[in-house]
């Protein structure tokens, strides 16, 4: 398996920013999820926040690797994130052609309910505070704020 192609991180006060480039494979994506979630655990994020963020990272990294880069090992996924005690921002960019997220079929419509796919973006939008794609649709920026208590 390839190792991450580059890793940079810096911190000032409680703010940490990092940039990692991973190959298009699931194992690298899982390792990166673990790394980001571990950093969040050290801040004041609730278990609910961790659940939401891990789910979103899983869905978006899978989309980047499988739909964006089409599992092409010559293509990479770039993940940049910044973390404070109360907020995480993540940008995930693949090397694919992109897609139009406004034209996804609604998976909750009766006729789509039994389809096997097409729910990832809905879940990401539901569990996170902000989800924004670039015009090309190959890069997504997400934000999760720390909830005020662990009872959410």
């Amino acid at each position: 398996m390839q190792q991450p192609k580059s890793t940079q991180s810096s911190s000032s006060g409680c703010l940490t920013t990092s940039r990692v480039v991973i190959p298009s494979d699931d194992a690298s994506a899982l390792d990166l999820q673990d790394q980001i979630i571990e950093q969040m655990e050290q801040q004041s994020f609730s278990s609910r926040d961790l659940f939401s963020t891990r789910l979103a990272l899983s869905e978006l990294l899978t989309n980047a690797i499988r739909h964006g880069n089409r599992m092409d090992y010559d293509k990479s996924v770039t993940v940049e994130w910044s973390l404070t005690a109360t907020r995480i921002d993540v940008t995930i960019t693949d090397e694919g052609e992109g897609f139009d997220p406004s034209h996804l079929p609604d998976p909750t419509e009766e006729e789509n309910l039994e389809r096997c796919g097409g729910r990832g973006v809905l879940l990401v939008r539901s569990f996170l505070d902000e989800v924004c794609y670039n015009d090309r649709g190959n890069s997504v920026h997400i934000v999760k704020h720390a909830s005020s208590s662990d009872d959410a």
């Binding site: 659940f51 899983s58 899978t62 096997c116 796919g117 990832g120 879940l123």
Partner: peptide, 17 residues
Amino acid sequence: VEYLSSAALGKLITMDK
């Protein structure tokens, strides 16, 4: 189970069918 992705939902739908 503590975490479940949308891809897993797809398998559950197929199983149900």
